[in-house]
Structure formats: C-alpha cells, structure tokens
Amino acid sequence: MSATSLREGRSDPAAHSISLVLNGQPRQLDVLPWTTVLDLLREQLDLTGSKKGCDHGQCGACTVLLDGKRVNACLTLAVMLDGRDLTTIEGLANGDQLHPLQEAFVRHDAFQCGYCTPGQICSAVGLAREGRAQSRDEISELMSGNLCRCGAYNNILDAIEEALPATRGEGGA
C-alpha cells in the first residue's frame, strides 16, 4: 500500500492528518480521532499481526513499539501517532532473516496457537531495550503484561533468555 492510498477519512471533517514512520517507512495518513492504533493497523492498513485479545490493555496481544518502547496499541489513539516511529511485528524481520527473538520463539516452541505471539515478541524487544531484566525471575516479572492462555510461559522464558544478548546488541528497529 502506498503512503497516500489510505485516505479514507479525508472526506470526514473530523479526520486529522498525521505523519509517522511505520516499520521504517514514512507514512502520511488521515485518521479519525476515535480510531485506535490497533484498529488502524488491523482494519485499515491490513497489518493484522498485532492482535486484539481484549481491547482494554489487559492481555498484551497488541503490543507494538512506539519510539522503541513497548505499548498497548489498543489504548493508543491513532491521531496521537503524529511525528512518531511505530514498529509492529511485521517490521521486525529483515527481509527473510527473522529477528533473533522470532527465531528463538520458533526454536523453543514458545507458543501454541500463536495469537499472543506477536505481542510477546514485540514486548520482549522492548524488554531488551529497557535493559532492566537480568535474571530469569526479572524477565518473568517484566513479561507479565503478556498473557498466554496456551500456557507456553516456560518456553517463552527460554526463548527470551537465549535471544536477549543478541537483541540487546542490535541497533535500530
């Protein structure tokens, strides 16, 4: 989709024009004030990797990276993205080269149904950047904003523990 193709709200006087960097690409969008980042991604930009598990900040499935920090896309308004840098699960891999956390999640079978997985991975990228979690217990506490109903928590911890050094080392995205 080109940067200007999404202008659904243009005819609506309530729409606001915003500029952002989405998964490394500059984008200009017209958005309505009451559209959340999560609905913008899933329903308008066809980026369905960010999941809606609760829509109330109670599950973490919608976790994305806003200016490098992990946030819940369901409780962020799209109109507030103006001037900011947003990375979703679709923006983590480098072409066919999976992000170290994505690789580790596959290797450690750190999911079953996969619905919480994009949020878990984005959250783990944010965790790595924060640099606060050293021990397994600390990772566990700081990953507790991401529910996994399949109960793959042990494998999630294994994957993050393994990929944390490589993830901390990386630069952008």
């Binding site: 980026l47 369905t48 990797g49 960010s50 999941k51 979703t88 699960i89 679709e90 983590l92 891999a93 999976l98 994505q102 690789e103 999640f105 596959v106 290797r107 079978d109 999911f111 996969g114 619905y115 997985t117 994009p118 991975i121």
Partner: peptide, 15 residues
C-alpha cells in the same frame, strides 16, 4: 519445529 512457526512469529498467520 512447528511448520507454521514462521508465519506465527512474523504476524502473517491470519485468524
């Protein structure tokens, strides 16, 4: 490894 793993970790698996 799960054969559908790469689709799930990249957000390409559609529900």
């Amino acid at each position: 490894d799960r054969v559908d793993g790469p689709l799930k970790v990249t957000g390409q698996a559609r529900y």
